[in-house]
Amino acid sequence: MDAVANDARVHSGLRLGLPLAIAAALSFGMSGAWARGLIDAGWTPGAAVTVRIWVAALVLLIPTVIALRGRWRLLRRNLGVIAAYGLLAVTATQLFYFQAVAVMDVGLALLIEYTAPIAVVLWLWMRRGEKPTGRSILGALIAFFGLVLMLDVLSGRTVDVGGILWAFGAMVGAAAYFILSAKSDTGLPPIVLAGSGLLVGAVGLTLAGLVGILPMVWNTEDVAYRFGTVPWFVPVLAIGLIATALAYVLGIASTRLLGSRLASFIALAEVIAAMLFGWLLLGQLPNLLQGLGAGLVLAGVVVVKLGEPAASVASVSGDPALTTPGEHSVDTLEVDDA
């Protein structure tokens, strides 16, 4: 009976978690195209990303307070998790990536950041003893090779060592996003973790701008896209509301259902989504080699899924994919605290 119940939980988590993860990837993926319009209009990357995070943090502020329902002790008890999420998953990822882009090829910087799923697998192996299966390793290699083709980084260009280090810092932040999002024992609803983490991240980015680490330049000129010209606040709201606020909530919810390993590989679809929105908003089309790479990324995700540990193993290791949405709910934890 226990095995049957576990199988039901796994299938239930996959049915809900997979569409949420894909929706999160699509939401995250549109940010680059919208931001590129702002940057072409004279905004610095630092200003664009800081406004993006502030808009999302302010939008989620009231829903976060409502979701807490006065249980402020949840925030006090999880200050470490919230601070780590805001500083690593939000601030470090965004800040380090843009620092890398400032001195090296954008494609290579993004490729290094998207080695985060491999870092997640290694972390779970070292931290929890969850040794990856042969299929998981093969899937990681296929996905990695697909990203190499998609991002067209095999041009032999000279890169800046400092830029590589910044990009690896962004990779660490991205890996932290998946690992922290998968924590289902905090009692924090997804929207609370997203809202509080984004607020911490917004403050962190603002401080980085005030001390001069992150250049901040913006204006109120109209922004041009493939479909026409729009006021500056249209891309700002699109990035803040959809590509950040909604994306982070969906990302945390899906990661808790799927587990950090599988969710991190599905999130590779963000690269494909970014190319799609790049074509829709900017008229940028991938070449044949990049299209082949996109197919390999999807194939790699499938292979990783086939290589996931059996339900019994995942259950022992505490994989959130095997916990029903209410199993670690705030209400349950509130009773336990009492």
Rank of each mutant, 00 (worst) to 15 (best):
F227L: 15
L122H: 14
G251L: 00
Y114D: 07
P190H: 12
Q284M: 07
G283H: 12
M1S: 14
A273G: 13
G17L: 05
R73A: 08
Q99D: 10
P320T: 05
L276Q: 08
A224Q: 14
P325K: 01
F265M: 12
G293Q: 05
E270V: 03
P286E: 15
D336T: 13
G37Q: 06
Y177T: 02
H328L: 05
A41Y: 03
L122P: 06
G228Q: 04
L276A: 12
A245L: 02
G17Q: 12
V172P: 03
L250P: 13
P45T: 03
A84H: 02
D222P: 15
R71F: 01
V90R: 05
G201D: 01
G278A: 09
I118W: 04
V10Q: 14
E308K: 11
Q94L: 10
L198W: 00
D40M: 10
T332W: 10
L60Y: 05
S317A: 13
N287S: 11
D105W: 08
I137G: 08
G293L: 04
A25K: 01
L16K: 12
W54Q: 01
L214N: 11
T206L: 05
G139Y: 13
D337M: 09
L180D: 01
A263N: 13
I164K: 05
V301D: 04
G46V: 03
F233W: 15
A314I: 00
W166F: 15
V101C: 04
G197D: 06
V330S: 13
G187N: 11
W54S: 00
I62W: 09
R256M: 07
P215E: 12
L210D: 11
D331V: 09
I252E: 05
K131D: 08
E270R: 04
L58R: 06
A174Y: 04
G212Q: 06
T206V: 14
Y225D: 03
L205T: 04
A67E: 08
M275S: 14
A116M: 04
F96L: 15
P235N: 12
V249G: 01
A243M: 00
L289M: 11
A175Q: 05
D40W: 04
I112T: 10
A253V: 05
D185A: 01
S312A: 10
I239N: 06
T158S: 11
G139A: 15
N287T: 07
S317Y: 13
M30D: 03
V55F: 00
L198K: 03
F96H: 02
